[in-house]
């Protein structure tokens, strides 16, 4: 046990000296900075800013309603359509209202993106104003409930966590293991009372602790507290175990650090993107469940935002545990083939 801890401390020292540890801690800081900037642009605006092109506005009742809805909307006057388009491009307004010539009861709307949150909010505003003007009954839809709660920060948190766990598993660990193998440092360590199992345990612990440390930093900076912290961290540790085992196996397969980095990257993106984008594509939703990363990503999302308990995640937990253990077993067999280490 003592030797495992010595090796574990040594692994952290090695990661600091080789500067690979900075990569892991840079990502939470980068995410924090990006999210801070995103918050400034208000993805869910409380007060809409709408530009009105004056030459075309005429005396439409819609413009009058807009003027009267002062609490909900801020009107900015644009001289022409080109200026209105520029205001949208600069994120100064969310939409530009164009009249028709001659004036009619219908207007055109220019938005940055048809499917954005801002466009949805603008349409909701116009719908409400129209109902008030026409003295209609309340809207047919009284409330909108979404499966994925929270803003952009919450929705992307699991993606960032998956990115961190895969980064440790497929970029940092394979490179570190391959470097130890390339420089025959593993053989040097195996000249001491350290055995293969102890070396593997220390590397797995290193992978899990490094992943968890970076995830805790990310959660702290994002001000996110999982409601079921114990279950969340147990599941995070299990996922880190699986992908760290994969990283060690990859590292032992490679002769050189450079080839380990390349091989790691080949696995990294195909594991990251389909899982992270599975919510946005029907095809990816079909493909992603076959990937081990999805068996980590999807239950984690449910654990964080749908408050699912661990007992409802028996399959993904068993899947990750079995896959990690099988890969660790293969790593042990590779280490026993000393000629491979010596090649």
């Amino acid at each position: 046990m003592k030797n495992i801890f010595i090796l574990l401390f040594h692994d952290f020292a090695f990661a600091i000296k080789s500067k690979s540890i900075y990569l892991v801690f840079f990502i939470p800081l980068f995410v924090f900075a990006s999210e801070y900037l995103l918050d400034q642009s208000k993805t869910e605006p409380e007060k809409l800013k709408i530009a009105v092109v004056t030459t075309e506005s005429g005396s439409s009742p819609i413009f009058q309603m807009l003027q009267e809805a002062g609490k909900k909307v801020e009107i900015i006057v644009a001289k022409n359509e080109a200026e209105g388009r520029q205001l949208i491009s600069d994120h100064s307004v969310q939409a530009v209202v164009l009249g028709t010539n001659p004036p009619s009861k219908q207007l055109s709307l220019i938005v940055l993106r048809r499917d954005s949150v801002e466009t949805l909010a603008t349409l909701q505003l116009f719908s409400a104003l129209q109902r008030i003007h026409e003295k209609n009954n309340p809207s047919w839809i009284s409330e909108i409930k979404s499966l994925r709660e929270g803003g952009l920060r919450s929705l992307t948190l699991t993606t960032w966590i998956l990115m961190l766990v895969l980064l440790v598993g497929f970029i940092i660990l394979p490179a570190q293991v391959a470097e130890e193998k390339e420089k025959k440092l593993i053989l040097a360590l195996l000249q001491t009372p350290i055995n293969e199992k102890q070396w593997l345990i220390s590397k797995i612990l290193f992978g899990i602790l490094l992943s968890l440390a970076s995830i805790i930093l990310l959660m702290f900076l994002s001000r996110f507290n999982p409601k079921n912290a114990l279950a969340s961290f147990a599941f995070l540790a299990l996922g880190s175990y699986c992908f760290s085992a994969a990283g060690i196996f990859l590292g032992l397969l490679c002769r050189h650090q450079a080839s380990a980095r390349t091989l790691g990257f080949i696995f990294y993106l195909p594991l990251l993107l389909p899982s992270a984008l599975s919510d946005f594509s029907k095809k990816l939703t079909v493909i992603a469940p076959f990937l081990p990363s999805y068996q980590f990503f999807s239950p984690l999302h449910d654990l964080f935002f749908a408050e699912t308990s661990l007992t409802a995640m028996i399959f993904p937990m068993t899947y990750l545990m079995v896959l990690g253990s099988v890969l660790l077993g293969f790593s042990y067999l590779l280490m026993q083939k000393r000629w491979l280490m010596n090649a």
Partner: peptide, 18 residues
């Protein structure tokens, strides 16, 4: 096959501990 990133003292100390 020494740990290049580390000092001479660290290399010897690591093995003494192990």
């Amino acid at each position: 096959n020494l740990f290049d990133f580390f000092s001479v003292g660290y290399n010897l100390k690591l093995f003494a501990l192990l």
